[in-house]
Protein backbone atom coordinates (compact mmCIF):
# COMPACT_ATOMS: atom_id res chain seq x y z
CA UNK A 1 0.00 0.00 0.00
CA UNK A 2 1.25 3.44 -0.86
CA UNK A 3 0.82 6.30 1.52
CA UNK A 4 -2.28 8.34 0.73
CA UNK A 5 -4.20 11.24 2.13
CA UNK A 6 -7.79 10.91 3.29
CA UNK A 7 -10.76 13.19 3.54
CA UNK A 8 -14.30 12.69 4.64
CA UNK A 9 -16.44 14.48 2.08
CA UNK A 10 -19.10 16.83 3.40
CA UNK A 11 -21.41 16.86 0.39
CA UNK A 12 -21.88 14.99 -2.84
CA UNK A 13 -20.88 18.07 -4.81
CA UNK A 14 -17.74 18.56 -2.76
CA UNK A 15 -16.82 14.91 -3.15
CA UNK A 16 -17.12 15.09 -6.92
CA UNK A 17 -15.17 18.35 -7.06
CA UNK A 18 -12.38 16.99 -4.91
CA UNK A 19 -12.16 13.81 -6.94
CA UNK A 20 -11.79 15.76 -10.17
CA UNK A 21 -9.26 18.21 -8.82
CA UNK A 22 -6.84 15.89 -7.01
CA UNK A 23 -4.76 13.75 -9.35
CA UNK A 24 -5.07 10.07 -8.38
CA UNK A 25 -8.04 10.57 -6.06
CA UNK A 26 -10.54 7.76 -5.48
CA UNK A 27 -13.82 7.43 -3.66
CA UNK A 28 -13.97 4.89 -0.92
CA UNK A 29 -17.25 3.30 0.12
CA UNK A 30 -17.18 -0.07 1.92
CA UNK A 31 -13.56 -0.53 0.92
CA UNK A 32 -13.97 -4.27 0.50
CA UNK A 33 -12.56 -4.22 -3.00
CA UNK A 34 -10.51 -1.05 -3.08
CA UNK A 35 -8.51 -1.75 0.07
CA UNK A 36 -7.60 -5.27 -1.04
CA UNK A 37 -6.35 -3.89 -4.33
CA UNK A 38 -4.43 -1.12 -2.59
CA UNK A 39 -2.63 -3.60 -0.37
CA UNK A 40 -1.44 -5.38 -3.49
CA UNK A 41 -0.65 -2.04 -5.18
CA UNK A 42 -2.94 -2.88 -8.05
CA UNK A 43 -4.69 0.36 -7.14
CA UNK A 44 -2.44 3.17 -5.92
CA UNK A 45 -4.63 6.17 -5.14
CA UNK A 46 -2.89 9.19 -3.67
CA UNK A 47 -6.02 10.51 -2.04
CA UNK A 48 -9.15 8.82 -0.71
CA UNK A 49 -12.47 10.57 -0.49
CA UNK A 50 -14.77 8.86 1.96
CA UNK A 51 -18.33 9.02 0.68
CA UNK A 52 -19.93 7.14 3.56
CA UNK A 53 -21.49 10.10 5.31
CA UNK A 54 -23.31 11.92 2.55
CA UNK A 55 -26.81 10.65 3.19
CA UNK A 56 -26.65 8.34 0.17
CA UNK A 57 -27.78 5.38 2.22
CA UNK A 58 -31.54 5.57 1.70
CA UNK A 59 -33.96 3.52 -0.38
CA UNK A 60 -36.81 5.71 -1.65
CA UNK A 61 -39.82 5.17 -3.84
CA UNK A 62 -39.77 7.17 -7.08
CA UNK A 63 -42.82 9.07 -8.39
CA UNK A 64 -43.31 6.53 -11.20
CA UNK A 65 -43.46 3.56 -8.84
CA UNK A 66 -39.84 2.46 -8.93
CA UNK A 67 -37.15 2.48 -6.26
CA UNK A 68 -34.15 4.71 -5.87
CA UNK A 69 -31.32 2.94 -4.08
CA UNK A 70 -28.68 5.21 -2.59
CA UNK A 71 -25.15 4.40 -3.72
CA UNK A 72 -24.10 3.78 -0.13
CA UNK A 73 -26.91 1.37 0.74
CA UNK A 74 -25.20 -1.76 2.05
CA UNK A 75 -25.72 -5.00 0.18
CA UNK A 76 -27.17 -6.54 3.35
CA UNK A 77 -29.73 -3.76 3.80
CA UNK A 78 -30.71 -3.78 0.15
CA UNK A 79 -31.26 -7.54 0.13
CA UNK A 80 -33.39 -7.31 3.27
CA UNK A 81 -35.52 -4.35 2.21
CA UNK A 82 -39.18 -5.33 2.27
CA UNK A 83 -39.96 -3.62 -1.06
CA UNK A 84 -36.98 -5.22 -2.76
CA UNK A 85 -37.87 -8.65 -1.50
CA UNK A 86 -41.47 -8.25 -2.61
CA UNK A 87 -41.10 -6.50 -5.97
CA UNK A 88 -37.54 -7.21 -7.06
CA UNK A 89 -36.87 -10.60 -5.53
CA UNK A 90 -34.29 -11.43 -8.17
CA UNK A 91 -32.13 -8.58 -6.88
CA UNK A 92 -32.43 -9.67 -3.28
CA UNK A 93 -31.51 -13.23 -4.23
CA UNK A 94 -28.56 -12.13 -6.34
CA UNK A 95 -27.19 -10.06 -3.47
CA UNK A 96 -27.51 -12.92 -1.02
CA UNK A 97 -25.71 -15.22 -3.43
CA UNK A 98 -22.67 -12.94 -3.30
CA UNK A 99 -19.67 -12.81 -0.99
CA UNK A 100 -20.33 -13.46 2.73
CA UNK A 101 -22.44 -11.91 5.44
CA UNK A 102 -19.56 -9.84 6.77
CA UNK A 103 -18.65 -8.51 3.34
CA UNK A 104 -22.25 -7.69 2.45
CA UNK A 105 -22.50 -5.67 5.66
CA UNK A 106 -19.79 -3.37 4.32
CA UNK A 107 -20.23 -3.62 0.56
CA UNK A 108 -22.26 -0.83 -1.06
CA UNK A 109 -24.44 -0.53 -4.11
CA UNK A 110 -22.05 1.80 -5.93
CA UNK A 111 -18.95 -0.12 -4.92
CA UNK A 112 -20.46 -3.41 -6.01
CA UNK A 113 -21.12 -2.06 -9.53
CA UNK A 114 -17.51 -0.92 -9.73
CA UNK A 115 -15.78 -3.97 -8.26
CA UNK A 116 -12.97 -5.16 -10.44
CA UNK A 117 -12.33 -8.51 -12.05
CA UNK A 118 -11.09 -11.56 -10.13
CA UNK A 119 -8.73 -12.62 -12.93
CA UNK A 120 -5.76 -14.19 -11.09
CA UNK A 121 -3.20 -12.53 -13.39
CA UNK A 122 -4.72 -9.15 -12.65
CA UNK A 123 -4.08 -9.96 -8.98
CA UNK A 124 -0.38 -10.81 -9.34
CA UNK A 125 1.58 -7.66 -10.16
CA UNK A 126 4.51 -9.68 -11.50
CA UNK A 127 2.37 -11.06 -14.31
CA UNK A 128 1.46 -9.40 -17.58
CA UNK A 129 -2.01 -7.86 -17.57
CA UNK A 130 -3.37 -5.26 -19.97
CA UNK A 131 -6.04 -4.17 -17.55
CA UNK A 132 -3.62 -3.45 -14.73
CA UNK A 133 -0.72 -2.32 -16.87
CA UNK A 134 -1.87 -1.39 -20.37
CA UNK A 135 0.33 -2.85 -23.07
CA UNK A 136 1.95 -5.53 -20.90
CA UNK A 137 -0.03 -8.35 -22.51
CA UNK A 138 -2.72 -10.63 -21.21
CA UNK A 139 -1.46 -13.36 -18.89
CA UNK A 140 -4.75 -15.20 -18.85
CA UNK A 141 -5.41 -15.67 -22.54
CA UNK A 142 -2.90 -18.52 -22.85
CA UNK A 143 -2.89 -19.27 -19.13
CA UNK A 144 -5.37 -20.30 -16.46
CA UNK A 145 -8.66 -18.88 -17.61
CA UNK A 146 -11.19 -21.25 -16.11
CA UNK A 147 -13.14 -18.53 -14.32
CA UNK A 148 -12.90 -15.89 -17.03
CA UNK A 149 -15.34 -14.50 -19.56
CA UNK A 150 -16.46 -15.90 -22.88
CA UNK A 151 -18.64 -13.00 -24.05
CA UNK A 152 -17.66 -9.46 -24.86
CA UNK A 153 -13.99 -10.37 -24.60
CA UNK A 154 -11.14 -9.12 -26.77
CA UNK A 155 -7.61 -10.13 -27.68
CA UNK A 156 -6.46 -7.72 -25.01
CA UNK A 157 -8.54 -9.01 -22.12
CA UNK A 158 -10.94 -11.82 -21.24
CA UNK A 159 -11.69 -10.75 -17.66
CA UNK A 160 -15.15 -11.45 -16.27
CA UNK A 161 -17.27 -8.93 -14.40
CA UNK A 162 -17.71 -10.69 -11.08
CA UNK A 163 -20.78 -8.98 -9.63
CA UNK A 164 -24.00 -10.82 -8.84
CA UNK A 165 -25.94 -7.69 -7.91
CA UNK A 166 -25.18 -6.03 -11.22
CA UNK A 167 -26.59 -9.00 -13.14
CA UNK A 168 -29.95 -8.59 -11.46
CA UNK A 169 -29.84 -4.84 -11.99
CA UNK A 170 -29.09 -5.38 -15.64
CA UNK A 171 -32.06 -7.71 -15.86
CA UNK A 172 -34.30 -5.08 -14.28
CA UNK A 173 -33.16 -2.32 -16.68
CA UNK A 174 -31.87 -0.18 -13.85
CA UNK A 175 -30.21 3.18 -14.32
CA UNK A 176 -27.09 4.48 -12.63
CA UNK A 177 -27.49 8.03 -11.36
CA UNK A 178 -24.40 10.19 -11.06
CA UNK A 179 -23.15 13.67 -10.37
CA UNK A 180 -20.02 15.12 -11.94
CA UNK A 181 -17.52 17.69 -10.72
CA UNK A 182 -19.66 20.54 -12.06
CA UNK A 183 -22.65 19.33 -10.14
CA UNK A 184 -24.34 18.02 -13.29
CA UNK A 185 -26.47 14.93 -12.83
CA UNK A 186 -27.08 12.20 -15.37
CA UNK A 187 -28.81 8.87 -15.46
CA UNK A 188 -26.98 6.12 -17.33
CA UNK A 189 -28.87 3.00 -18.41
CA UNK A 190 -27.00 0.10 -16.83
CA UNK A 191 -26.60 -1.52 -20.25
CA UNK A 192 -24.36 1.41 -21.21
CA UNK A 193 -22.60 1.78 -17.90
CA UNK A 194 -19.91 -0.89 -18.21
CA UNK A 195 -17.55 -0.90 -21.20
CA UNK A 196 -16.29 -3.91 -23.08
CA UNK A 197 -12.51 -4.33 -22.96
CA UNK A 198 -11.65 -3.82 -26.63
CA UNK A 199 -8.13 -2.43 -26.80
CA UNK A 200 -8.54 -0.51 -23.54
CA UNK A 201 -9.47 -3.01 -20.83
CA UNK A 202 -8.31 -0.52 -18.20
CA UNK A 203 -11.40 1.59 -18.96
CA UNK A 204 -14.25 -0.24 -17.34
CA UNK A 205 -17.14 2.23 -17.19
CA UNK A 206 -18.35 5.45 -18.78
CA UNK A 207 -17.80 7.41 -15.57
CA UNK A 208 -15.75 10.56 -16.05
CA UNK A 209 -13.02 11.57 -13.61
CA UNK A 210 -14.66 12.78 -10.44
CA UNK A 211 -18.11 11.54 -11.38
CA UNK A 212 -19.77 9.97 -8.36
CA UNK A 213 -22.56 7.42 -8.31
CA UNK A 214 -25.40 8.77 -6.20
CA UNK A 215 -27.98 6.06 -6.66
CA UNK A 216 -29.30 3.26 -8.80
CA UNK A 217 -32.91 3.56 -9.93
CA UNK A 218 -35.10 0.54 -10.49
CA UNK A 219 -38.06 1.01 -12.80
CA UNK A 220 -41.57 -0.04 -11.74
CA UNK A 221 -41.84 -3.65 -10.67
CA UNK A 222 -42.46 -6.07 -13.53
CA UNK A 223 -44.07 -8.85 -11.51
CA UNK A 224 -43.57 -12.42 -12.59
CA UNK A 225 -41.54 -15.26 -11.12
CA UNK A 226 -38.05 -14.20 -10.08
CA UNK A 227 -35.13 -16.62 -10.14
CA UNK A 228 -31.43 -16.13 -9.46
CA UNK A 229 -29.36 -19.24 -9.98
CA UNK A 230 -25.64 -19.16 -9.29
CA UNK A 231 -23.34 -22.08 -10.03
CA UNK A 232 -19.88 -22.15 -8.45
CA UNK A 233 -17.18 -24.48 -7.19
CA UNK A 234 -18.55 -24.65 -3.65
CA UNK A 235 -21.88 -24.13 -2.00
CA UNK A 236 -21.26 -20.58 -0.79
CA UNK A 237 -18.73 -17.77 -0.73
CA UNK A 238 -17.36 -18.10 -4.23
CA UNK A 239 -17.74 -16.15 -7.43
CA UNK A 240 -20.00 -17.51 -10.12
CA UNK A 241 -18.80 -19.84 -12.82
CA UNK A 242 -22.15 -19.05 -14.38
CA UNK A 243 -25.14 -17.25 -12.95
CA UNK A 244 -28.55 -16.59 -14.46
CA UNK A 245 -31.04 -13.97 -13.39
CA UNK A 246 -34.50 -14.52 -14.82
CA UNK A 247 -38.00 -13.14 -14.55
CA UNK A 248 -40.81 -15.19 -16.07
CA UNK A 249 -44.02 -13.32 -16.92
CA UNK A 250 -47.45 -14.90 -16.67
CA UNK A 251 -47.85 -14.46 -20.42
CA UNK A 252 -44.98 -16.79 -21.31
CA UNK A 253 -42.45 -14.03 -21.87
CA UNK A 254 -39.25 -13.96 -19.90
CA UNK A 255 -36.04 -12.04 -19.60
CA UNK A 256 -32.58 -13.27 -18.75
CA UNK A 257 -29.26 -11.82 -17.67
CA UNK A 258 -26.02 -13.67 -17.08
CA UNK A 259 -23.07 -13.46 -14.71
CA UNK A 260 -19.68 -15.15 -14.75
CA UNK A 261 -19.52 -15.32 -18.51
CA UNK A 262 -19.40 -11.71 -19.67
CA UNK A 263 -16.88 -8.94 -19.68
CA UNK A 264 -19.84 -7.06 -18.22
CA UNK A 265 -23.22 -8.15 -16.84
CA UNK A 266 -24.63 -9.88 -19.90
CA UNK A 267 -28.02 -9.51 -21.51
CA UNK A 268 -29.13 -9.92 -25.12
CA UNK A 269 -32.58 -9.34 -26.57
CA UNK A 270 -32.45 -12.48 -28.67
CA UNK A 271 -32.22 -14.60 -25.54
CA UNK A 272 -35.38 -13.04 -24.13
CA UNK A 273 -37.09 -13.61 -27.46
CA UNK A 274 -36.20 -17.30 -27.33
CA UNK A 275 -37.80 -17.74 -23.91
CA UNK A 276 -40.72 -19.72 -25.24
CA UNK A 277 -38.42 -22.26 -26.87
CA UNK A 278 -36.71 -23.36 -23.69
CA UNK A 279 -33.27 -23.45 -22.14
CA UNK A 280 -31.35 -24.66 -25.16
CA UNK A 281 -32.69 -21.96 -27.43
CA UNK A 282 -32.12 -19.24 -24.84
CA UNK A 283 -28.56 -20.45 -24.29
CA UNK A 284 -27.85 -20.47 -27.99
CA UNK A 285 -29.08 -16.92 -28.37
CA UNK A 286 -27.26 -15.68 -25.30
CA UNK A 287 -24.01 -17.30 -26.35
CA UNK A 288 -23.89 -15.84 -29.85
CA UNK A 289 -20.33 -14.73 -30.49
CA UNK A 290 -18.94 -16.57 -27.48
CA UNK A 291 -15.20 -16.99 -27.52
CA UNK A 292 -13.79 -19.66 -25.24
CA UNK A 293 -10.42 -20.93 -24.17
CA UNK A 294 -9.43 -24.51 -23.46
CA UNK A 295 -10.08 -23.87 -19.76
CA UNK A 296 -13.42 -22.12 -19.90
CA UNK A 297 -15.16 -23.75 -22.86
CA UNK A 298 -17.33 -25.70 -20.38
CA UNK A 299 -19.12 -22.48 -19.57
CA UNK A 300 -21.16 -22.73 -22.76
CA UNK A 301 -22.56 -26.04 -21.68
CA UNK A 302 -23.00 -24.77 -18.17
CA UNK A 303 -25.05 -21.79 -19.37
CA UNK A 304 -27.50 -24.15 -21.00
CA UNK A 305 -27.61 -26.40 -17.94
CA UNK A 306 -28.08 -23.49 -15.57
CA UNK A 307 -30.92 -22.24 -17.73
CA UNK A 308 -32.46 -25.69 -17.61
CA UNK A 309 -32.27 -25.51 -13.85
CA UNK A 310 -33.86 -22.06 -13.91
CA UNK A 311 -36.77 -23.35 -16.02
CA UNK A 312 -37.15 -26.24 -13.62
CA UNK A 313 -37.25 -23.85 -10.68
CA UNK A 314 -39.85 -21.73 -12.43
CA UNK A 315 -42.08 -24.77 -12.93
CA UNK A 316 -41.66 -25.78 -9.33
CA UNK A 317 -42.83 -22.35 -8.21
CA UNK A 318 -45.65 -21.94 -10.71
Amino acid sequence: MKAFTYERATSVEAAARAAASVQGARFIAGGTNLLDLMKLQIETPTHLIDVNHLGLDRIEETPDGGLRIGALVRNTDLAADRRVRRDYAVLSRALLAGASGQLRNKATTGGNLLQRTRCPYFYDTRMPCNKRQPGSGCGALQGMSRSLAILGVSDACIAQHPSDMAVAMRLLDSAVDTMDANGARRSIPIADFHLLPGDTPQQETVLKPGEIITSVTLPRPIGGTHVYRKVRDRASYAFALVSVAAVFGKDGTARFAFGGIGAKPWRVEAADAAAGRGAKAVAEAALAGARTTHHNDFKKMLVERTLASVYRQREARA
Binding site: D233, S236, F239
Partner: peptide, 10 residues
Amino acid sequence: AEYVVPVHAD
Protein backbone atom coordinates in the same frame (compact mmCIF):
# COMPACT_ATOMS: atom_id res chain seq x y z
CA ALA B 1 -10.53 -16.48 -3.06
CA GLU B 2 -9.17 -18.64 -5.87
CA TYR B 3 -7.85 -21.68 -3.97
CA VAL B 4 -11.19 -22.89 -2.75
CA VAL B 5 -11.57 -25.05 0.33
CA PRO B 6 -14.90 -26.24 1.72
CA VAL B 7 -17.02 -23.73 3.63
CA HIS B 8 -19.69 -24.56 6.16
CA ALA B 9 -22.38 -24.76 3.53
CA ASP B 10 -20.47 -27.61 1.86
